[in-house]
Design a protein around this nucleic acid. Structure first.
Lengths: 347, 347
DNA sequence: TCCGGGCGATTAATCGTTTAATCAGGTCCC
DNA sequence: GGGACCTGATTAAACGATTAATCGCCCGGA
């Protein structure tokens, strides 16, 4: 590969072989009619020069930038690394780049950053909407990753089924009083997870749900969740909707002298990267982000490229998963060290 | 703002006002010679149509895309959200978008993803290099964020000074045996942090350094760090180089029945988002990512735009901070609940 | 009256790629 | 021998924005 100061373009190759730029373009894209030997020569010098088509010219001509936007409600979300990595990887495989945008938790900002992405010419947008947000109709295809109970959702983890896994696990361990710990009752994701849990808690097993934000509104942020009292009431399993809350519950229990998992079990959700970095390592529910990202990106790119091929006008708005893909990706249970059968106290 | 199906362009505005596209362009950019009243009319209809210059045409003509690349050694790094958010914000303020790339910890991949970004036409690259990587000379300006002891570093947190803060804090609390817990002795960042700590540990205070990766190589991943033995040896303070390791140390101590902060203090580094989400909340060192990002982006954009203005040929390779900016951004101590004076055991 | 010059706007070229339309030349068949 | 047809290539236009060069016009001074 030559190392020129400026990147080679079609006309350089054309001049070198004394052919027209159109022929070079045809040869490299395989679209027009070019003799095999000439096409070979062209491909050879192209790779010799290290030619890659300039995105600017192509975008101008074709109207497509091969860039997707990724919109997150809050980029500081600890789940973000997994998501960004998976989306970037899936997009790269499909030949797309990923432009990030952060709405910083602000609802108004969410539409603003989407507009900024569109102004930059992205071909489509992957969005993890902020709680309770309706995505207004923008002029481009959108893939929504949230929860199957969100209208317009494209794909998401099967939070309900994940909740079922948690409940089944704890019940099968022999727990008979399970405390479900949610954060915000307005979250579709959390409601799905909790709904799934409840659906698999048999009648003979007691359960109760508490919401952290409500507790904190009544007291102060970072207040005690009162788990020691719940433990004394007989709860031996504490099922949270997020690893973050599981860690909080875990440290609160340990701080009260309640051992985990001997006296009490704790479960999380999401399998954040650090969830296995401490002792006892968290039992949690893992989501298959690569699969979710692939479905979202496939749906998006097919909508985009379908459009371009298209007799039909562009299809803006939320996209559906491809026929052979599902909207809900199963979650898996990761049993580590915070769950065990309850110690049988003398009856 | 009209809501057309296709985005307005210069010629639409020109046709509407019966002027040439050049005049419209001049009026909007304020460069050519246009009468005030015509310029006003043009600006009015432009904003009425919701015109924003298309990036493709502009990029093609000017050779600049107003997009920066952000390269991370491992996007799954828990520090990534803060970094990405800060860079994205700083870039957006400067009128640039941010394209992400993830080298997935692979050194060879690092140069590959940089090339992919360049092929996409980014104007510059912000990179957090993988340990021990030399950034080969690419044809574009690069801002390197690592540590001041890294050659070619553009800007970074003052890890050394952060280490000093930790040591001063622990020493002032009265600790006289401090265990420093590092992960990988090849990391410039970790060495800086530990060097800073040692530089502020007076002779009368004992200290010792252990490396997690070495311990794990000798035993197994996730093995005990042997902190209970260290505690019995008299160590009362455990200073780690990362919140991740602090959490590990904290849970190991708690699991051994050693109370924090009453019997032992633990400190982290980086102030990860979840560091305050559990009890006892971590005492840690916070880095001013927004400031770092601003310096990096400013240096990058000024190199880019200096080039364009330029008589001089483009300045590829690592950029320096602007004259009024510094290379090392001070870190701050965040005292929470894991640090306190050591309990005086009966002598 | 004629020329120089400033102002306000237009013309035209350019960036790199794609693609529809066209063209030159050869082959085949009636 | 002359159209029909196929093949392999070229020509030219187009995408949208920027910008150097140009042009017409009016005004002032000689």
């Amino acid at each position: 590969m030559h190392s020129n100061r400026t990147r080679p373009n079609l006309s350089q190759i054309a001049a070198l072989l004394d052919v027209s730029v159109a022929t070079v373009s045809n040869a490299l894209s395989g679209k027009g009619r070019v003799s095999n030997e000439l096409a070979d020569k062209i491909r050879a010098t192209a790779s010799d020069l290290g030619y890659v088509p300039g995105t600017a010219g192509r975008a101008l001509r074709t109207g497509r930038s091969y860039v997707l936007g990724l919109v997150l409600p809050d980029i500081a979300n600890p789940l973000f690394p997994q998501i960004a990595q998976a989306i970037e990887h899936a997009a790269a495989k499909a030949g797309y780049g990923v432009l990030i945008a952060d709405s910083r938790g602000d609802v108004a900002m969410q539409t603003e950053v989407i507009n900024r992405l569109l102004e930059r010419g992205v071909d489509g947008v992957v969005i993890l909407p902020r709680r309770g947000t309706r995505i207004s109709d923008i002029g481009s295809p959108i893939a929504v990753i949230d929860s199957s109970s969100t209208p317009g959702n494209t794909v998401s983890a099967d939070h309900w089924q994940g909740g079922q896994l948690v409940a089944e696990h704890l019940v099968s361990l022999g727990h008979s009083k399970i405390l479900i710990i949610g954060n915000n009752p307005d979250s579709n994701v959390q409601n799905d997870r909790i709904g799934g849990m409840k659906s698999r808690i048999p009648a003979k097993v007691q359960s109760e749900t508490i919401w952290i934000e409500r507790l904190e509104a009544a007291a102060h942020v970072g207040c005690s969740l009162g788990l020691d009292r719940k433990f004394k009431e007989g709860f031996t399993a504490f099922a949270t909707v997020s690893d973050l809350h599981a860690l909080r519950a875990l440290t609160e229990l340990l701080g009260c002298g309640i051992t985990v998992p001997e006296q009490a079990s704790v479960t999380g959700f999401d399998d954040l990267t650090w969830s296995s970095a401490f002792r006892p390592a968290l039992t949690t529910i893992h989501m298959d982000m690569p699969a979710i990202a692939k479905i979202a990106v496939d749906a998006l790119t097919s909508a985009i490229e379908g459009n371009a091929a298209g007799d039909t006008p562009p299809t803006p708005g939320p996209v559906r998963p491809l026929p052979d893909a599902c909207e809900s990706v199963p979650m898996t249970l990761v049993v580590r060290q915070t769950s065990a059968p309850p110690r049988l106290t003398a009856a």
